[in-house]
């Protein structure tokens, strides 16, 4: 029972992170906080990817001198690395957008970033 609960922990964390991220994306007025929500969402998905690759008692998937046959999945870890790189690029770009918008509009309140509408 305890083991199952522990194994479910990463997925519960993913759910909590996702809820926090959605909350920040939908209800925060500050653009920077929205972007933090986006970053949280990225972390949630990355954690999810790594968690689905976990095998109980598995070792790192390095084939030299391997002590046992059970390993965690390497594919999802590769996916996560790629996703992290993409996430960094996204965050950097979006934050620079926020900076330019603050310079030009004088605000980071998303409710005021609406020159384009209708």
């Amino acid at each position: 029972m305890i083991t199952r609960l522990l194994l479910a922990m990463p997925f519960l964390t993913v759910a909590v992170l996702l809820l926090l991220a959605l909350g920040a994306l939908l209800f925060k007025r500050n653009l920077i906080k929205m972007l933090m929500g986006l970053s949280l969402m990225e972390s949630a998905v990355n954690l999810f990817l790594v968690a689905i690759g976990y095998r109980q008692d598995g070792v790192a998937p390095i084939f030299t001198n391997v002590p046992q046959t059970l390993m965690v999945l390497p594919t999802v870890q590769a996916l996560t690395l790629t996703a992290i790189v993409i996430g960094v690029a996204t965050s950097a770009m979006m934050l620079s957008f926020a900076m330019v918008i603050y310079k030009k509009y004088g605000t980071v309140d998303v409710r005021n970033i609406r020159k384009l509408n209708g």
Binding site: L26, V110, I113, R114, N117, G118
Partner: peptide, 14 residues
């Protein structure tokens, strides 16, 4: 409906 507010856009998607 076309408010122009980014968080509204995300809300519609979700």
């Amino acid at each position: 409906f076309h408010t122009g507010i980014p968080s509204d856009y995300v809300a519609w998607l979700l």
